[in-house]
Design a protein around this nucleic acid. Sequence first.
DNA 1: CTGTTAGCGCTTTCAT
DNA 2: ATGAAAGCGCTAACAG
Lengths: 338, 338
Amino acid sequence: MVASIEDVARLAGVSIATVSRALRGLPDVAATTRDRVFAAATELDYVASPFAARLASGRTATVGVVVPFVNRWFFAEVIDTVETALRKAGFDLLLYNLGDGHGRARFFEVMPMRKRVDAVLVASLVLSDDEFAALSSLDAPVALLGLERRGFLAARIDDVHSARVAVEHLLSLGHRRIGLIGGDTDDPMRFTPPLHRRDGYRDALRAAGIEPEPALEVLGYFTVEGGGEAAERLLATPHRPTAIFAESDEMAYGALRTIRRAGLRVPDDVAVIGFDDQINAELMDLSTMRQPVAEQALDATTRLLAAIGAPEIAEPTTVVLPTELIVRGSTDPSRSVY
Amino acid sequence: MVASIEDVARLAGVSIATVSRALRGLPDVAATTRDRVFAAATELDYVASPFAARLASGRTATVGVVVPFVNRWFFAEVIDTVETALRKAGFDLLLYNLGDGHGRARFFEVMPMRKRVDAVLVASLVLSDDEFAALSSLDAPVALLGLERRGFLAARIDDVHSARVAVEHLLSLGHRRIGLIGGDTDDPMRFTPPLHRRDGYRDALRAAGIEPEPALEVLGYFTVEGGGEAAERLLATPHRPTAIFAESDEMAYGALRTIRRAGLRVPDDVAVIGFDDQINAELMDLSTMRQPVAEQALDATTRLLAAIGAPEIAEPTTVVLPTELIVRGSTDPSRSVY
DNA sequence: CTGTTAGCGCTTTCAT
DNA sequence: ATGAAAGCGCTAACAG
């Protein structure tokens, strides 16, 4: 069978306590002893049983990562970044994918992370007070990604401002009728961007003296399909918009397809700007607001790990990372690559 | 503090052994006793400590999932599907992302899954004998996704045949000079598709009496960028191909962009077919070979979980799932949606 | 600097 | 059907 700490102790001729100390790099172990322990451990190909260690120490060396989806660009990037950072720090990543409204309800009811994580990272979910309470009941530090709340450490972008910059870009090109393709702010899986990006859209219009029209705000559900159908509705309005702001690149792709299928040209007939600057945006020649996903994820993870060691040191803070307007051919004909 | 099994036992007026049995649904517990235990557990909001349970039982109720990337379509789909299936079965998902060649080497050297998973699922990695040995040393059932090996349960598609069908589609349209955009078969992060899809490509050509030309096989590294650059090289060949088979949709997207930027039309000047039928393929009007990712992942997971309960019952088998040719406008002008 | 010892919170015989 | 008791393999005081 596999070696246990006792086997190592016997081979090294020391007690199991010394083995434990030596292997974990604790101070107060003589160098020669340490060497002997390491040699024995190597020879026996020993690794500590994480469960025994966790039971004895109370620390799990595990972080729970909660996401509403795993197969969407933003969340896949987040998981990638967080996994790497955790692995480097010697932590395991326990993945929790909410999946749908039902999965979400069950998740917060059961709280499957109970007693098995040292910390939690939650990505881009609009949480109810009850859900926040459930997280707090875990009694572990919680990091929020893409949202913010007093008492929680968080990393995010300024969605309101970023959306406003996107729409201002369209305004600066002379557009006055600008459609919005957004997410459902009442969806049970609601996540944060839809609310804020819509606010930024309205802010920009009002600041330009344009009153937002409900008919120009349509739902695209953050999918390509949804974006395409939303664009159909926008094109069908009596006095159709000359520009569209989609709250995500994916929805913008759908809109581009709809517009072109309708025989209209981008950006001459209808300009389109997205949000994210995800991997395919350049491919689609799509103007967009770039957001630094890896940076947000890394920032949150780093501070979360720090919080595990020393909780309650200070009021958790929110870090807001900058976004950037990326102008491509879908709004600026002079830049079009096609 | 949080309740332990003793608290529940005291409240229910039984021994901790009975609590353990009742809560796990073991037989030989009187119905009335069971009810009392459940009532007590509910009242105290008790959940068993997984670590104590694992230490005592030796079972971890955890599956390790090893992927070379998490932010690529195929793997994100896999993780999504597997997570859902595991959660439903009461298992945790421990995610291991190899990241790069160095990460991969370290991974198989350290074997961070040791002593912490009941089973392992490996997705689309070409594994060396040493790496297979390392996995076997975990002494846990292993499921392979997208590859196959004697002694391991596996789910995959027939990459050789599927690639052949894709190329035969091009041949049936009259194309004789067909370029290949593939992955690097010598890459340290090598995964399985490149080898097999290239073989299928060559098989199809030979069967049609065409000798494969090395100049028409270029590397696209399974990225959009790489696919675009590969297409540039193909277009620059003296007698340029009239059709291109890309081993993934992503590379096909890059190729489409390159072709259009060069002022050529798809499919009239150059036809393109991809592989995967991932989410954006329809958007790009790309012909492709559809592969059932969720089905493969679910099949492997289901059988893996079964193997945990009853290992060695029978020789592990490989399930091969069917792929499907999806013809769109990038090969068939009559179907073009643009 | 090192060893002894008492748990951590369960599961699992073995009795009864 | 239930309980007593012996671990599972570590960590963390506490001695010395």
